[in-house]
């Protein structure tokens, strides 16, 4: 737990661009909430590796969102089922069903469809909220924290030693 917290702080306090961190979190949202071994996650992996996003933030987000996905599976199933059962979309789904790439992507699975749609909807809000949060954290909370006696005490604690030992800190 301490390690995870230290890792979050390490990312937040690093020199990395807030956009790179928040984009990594947004990508991890898709990869984490949807079934990992899905074709669309190969696209996510490609983007994560090619775009200069923060890999530590992505991996951390992936772990957290994968855990949350298990809790939200019934919700994703219900969302996917109502989308795939919608009469107005039947023509679209039928066309996709007859295309190998979509069959491999398992778009017709209720959880794949539900979780992908939910994560895509949340993608931009999560990106902008995370970015704003990081900027605000660095400008206000981090600057204030550095001046407090608590921070002074933490710097002297074992937690700080773990935190300081993490790679990418300096």
């Amino acid at each position: 737990m301490l390690y995870t917290l230290a890792k979050v702080l390490n990312i937040l306090n690093s020199e990395a661009d807030p956009s790179q961190i928040s984009l990594a979190i947004a990508f991890s949202l898709i990869a984490g909430l949807t079934p990992l071994m899905s074709l669309h996650n190969l696209v996510v992996l490609f983007l994560v590796l090619v775009l200069r996003v923060n890999l530590s933030a992505f991996l951390l987000g992936l772990a957290i969102f994968s855990g949350l996905a298990y809790l939200f599976d019934p919700l994703f199933h219900a969302a996917g089922l109502s989308l795939l059962s919608a009469q107005s979309l039947e023509g679209l789904w039928t066309s996709m069903y007859n295309m190998p790439v979509f069959r491999i992507a398992r778009f017709n699975n209720t959880i794949v469809m539900g979780s992908l749609v939910v994560s895509l909807i949340l993608f931009l809000p999560v990106f902008f909220l995370a970015r704003a949060g990081i900027v605000r954290y660095r400008s206000t909370f981090l600057a204030w924290m550095k001046k407090t006696k608590l921070a002074q005490a933490i710097w002297a604690s074992s937690f700080y030693k773990i935190y300081a030992s993490l790679p990418g800190r300096h």
Binding site: D73, H77, G80, S85, Y97, N108, N109, T110, I111
Partner: peptide, 10 residues
Amino acid sequence: RSEGIDMRFR
């Protein structure tokens, strides 16, 4: 959990 249903279309 994690499995869902594979819907079938024409």
